[in-house]
Each structure stands twice: as structure tokens, then as C-alpha cells.
């Protein structure tokens, strides 16, 4: 496995967010982390992109504990991984500069200065990877627009292109289409599958089971900070072994209650 967690736990203050989570993703596959909102999916992705060190357990890159590495080595590992957030989080700059950002921070300072000078004299060339990334999301014609002037769907596609343009081994996508309309969602899913075909390993956190079914090679169902079940989509959908997975697949909302009779029934909802 390329990127794995082994028994990681993490809490904020007294509140445990993740408890003993072990998952892994390989190059060229899509792993979907599904589950209701607020169950720790975002926290798990942030652990994978090394925003924080887990309280317990390990995050490993090709079987090497990333928190046992030096800062410089860990930076090198981080630069094999890119992330797309639920909000596009673009910079106040033209689309092209946004997409080129990851490549730019990987350059030496003298290369960056040279690039600045070329920009100033009007050289608008993009690297091939950045060009391809923007083409993949269908926004090559918007390259000179300010990124903050784009619609929500376009902005999220640019955020995806920005993450793809660094040629990552692994991409982490946190609810990438939760604010998108069906057309933008379709473009994004198509882009995910194209990245996968190029050998990128993709982790997608989502609460959309239909999306999980469309794009996943494997699904991990997370509930209340733990992975309760994982496997190929056919198995999760057709033969869920955990009661909570079963109900989530069936479209039930999951509540933290012991008394199941307190849950609204579909009959009372429709009346």
C-alpha cells in the first residue's frame, strides 16, 4: 500500500474524533470513505495529508512512518500527496497561477524569481502538466480569469486541477462535490477516474452513497470515528455486514440514540 494508517486515534481536547482507524490506499485505485457528516472523515484526510500528528498509531508512506522522518523528508512525502477541500480555497490570483502553485513551491528560489520575471514580461506559458490538469476539468478557457470570480462548481474544478497539476501519487478529496450541481459533479467524477487511470491513488470522503458506488474500487464505512466495515462496493451495497452500514446504504439517517423507536419512521415522514 502506498499510503496507510495503522490504528490511528486523534482527539481534540477530551473529545475523541478518530479511534483506532486503519485504512490504506494504493496507486491507481479509488478508496471512498463514506459515512454520515461529523464522523471524522475530514479529520482522517487531514491526518493523511500530515496537518497533524496522530495521538496514537502510525501514518505510513510505503511502509515508513512519516512522523519518524525528518521535517525535510516528510516535506518530500507531503509533496507526493495533494488535497482538495470541501470549499475550493483558491488564491486571489488568476486561475493559471492557482493551478501552477504546487509546482511553484517545489521550485528553488532562483527558479521562482526567473518565473516571476517571465510573468512580468508577459510570458504566459504553462507547464504541460498544468495545461493537462486544466484541460481535464474543462476550464482551459478560464485560465486568465481571477479564480475568485468563478462559480462554485468551476472553482472546485480548478481546485481539483491545482491538486492534479503537481502530478501526485495520491490525491485526497474531502467532500469535493458536496456543493456542486449534477453537471459539475459529473465533470469532477470523470476527472477523478481519469486521474486514477493515470495511476493516481485517490481517497474520496463523501456522504453520497451514489457517488461512492459510481467511482469506488473500495469503500470504507466510517461511523463515529471508527471504520465499521470496508470492502469492494458490490459487497458493501449488496451484503453489508454491519447494521449501521446496512441502514446508511438504505438511505436512513443515522442518529446517536439507543432507543430506535425514537427515530422517525418513513411513514410518519411522508404523512
Amino acid at each position: 500500500m502506498t499510503l496507510t494508517t495503522d490504528g490511528v486515534s486523534l482527539g481534540y481536547g477530551d473529545e475523541a474524533v478518530l479511534d483506532d482507524v486503519s485504512i490504506g490506499v494504493d496507486s491507481g485505485e479509488v478508496l471512498t470513505v463514506v459515512g454520515p457528516s461529523g464522523t471524522g472523515k475530514t479529520t482522517l484526510l487531514r491526518l493523511l495529508s500530515m496537518f497533524r500528528r496522530p495521538d496514537a498509531g502510525t501514518v505510513a508512506w510505503h511502509d515508513t512512518d512519516v512522523w519518524g522522518l525528518s521535517d525535510e523528508e516528510r516535506l518530500a512525502v507531503r509533496r507526493q500527496i495533494s488535497m482538495v477541500f470541501q470549499e475550493p480555497s483558491l488564491f486571489n490570483a488568476p486561475v493559471a497561477r492557482n493551478v501552477l502553485y504546487g509546482q511553484r513551491v517545489r521550485q528553488s528560489w532562483s527558479e521562482r524569481v526567473q518565473r516571476r520575471v517571465r510573468d512580468a514580461v508577459g510570458d504566459r506559458s504553462m507547464t504541460e502538466t498544468a495545461h493537462t490538469a486544466l484541460e481535464t476539468v474543462g476550464l482551459l478557457d478560464k485560465r486568465d480569469r481571477n479564480a475568485l470570480s468563478l462559480s462554485g462548481g468551476e472553482a472546485q474544478r480548478v481546485a481539483f486541477a491545482r491538486a492534479l497539476a503537481v502530478d501526485p501519487e495520491i490525491m485526497l478529496l474531502d467532500e469535493p462535490s458536496s456543493n456542486l450541481d449534477p453537471r459539475n459533479t459529473a465533470v469532477l467524477e470523470e476527472a477523478i477516474l481519469r486521474a486514477k487511470a493515470r495511476g493516481v491513488g485517490v481517497v474520496v470522503a463523501t456522504h453520497d452513497m451514489n457517488q461512492a458506488e459510481r467511482i469506488s474500487d473500495r469503500i470504507a464505512f466510517v461511523y463515529d470515528g471508527s471504520v465499521v466495515e470496508s470492502g469492494p462496493p458490490e459487497r458493501i451495497f449488496d451484503d453489508p455486514r454491519d447494521r449501521r452500514t446496512n441502514r446508511f446504504v438504505a438511505g436512513d439517517l443515522l442518529y446517536e440514540v439507543d432507543d430506535e423507536s425514537a427515530l422517525p419512521t418513513s411513514a410518519s415522514e411522508s404523512s
Binding site: 477541500f85 470549499e87 488564491f91 502553485y101 504546487g102 513551491v105
Partner: peptide
């Protein structure tokens, strides 16, 4: 979220600082 994006795109602390100034 903008700082997070700079970090997640492989930025160092200095890169994140530069993004904030920009």
C-alpha cells in the same frame, strides 16, 4: 482554508506565510 490549501499543496511554513501576505 487558504492557508490549509497552501500547506496541502506542498508549501513550507514560509510558503504559507507568503500566501497570506499575498
Amino acid at each position: 482554508s487558504v492557508r490549509d490549501a497552501a500547506f496541502a499543496m506542498g508549501g513550507t511554513d514560509l510558503d504559507v506565510g507568503i500566501v497570506v501576505i499575498k
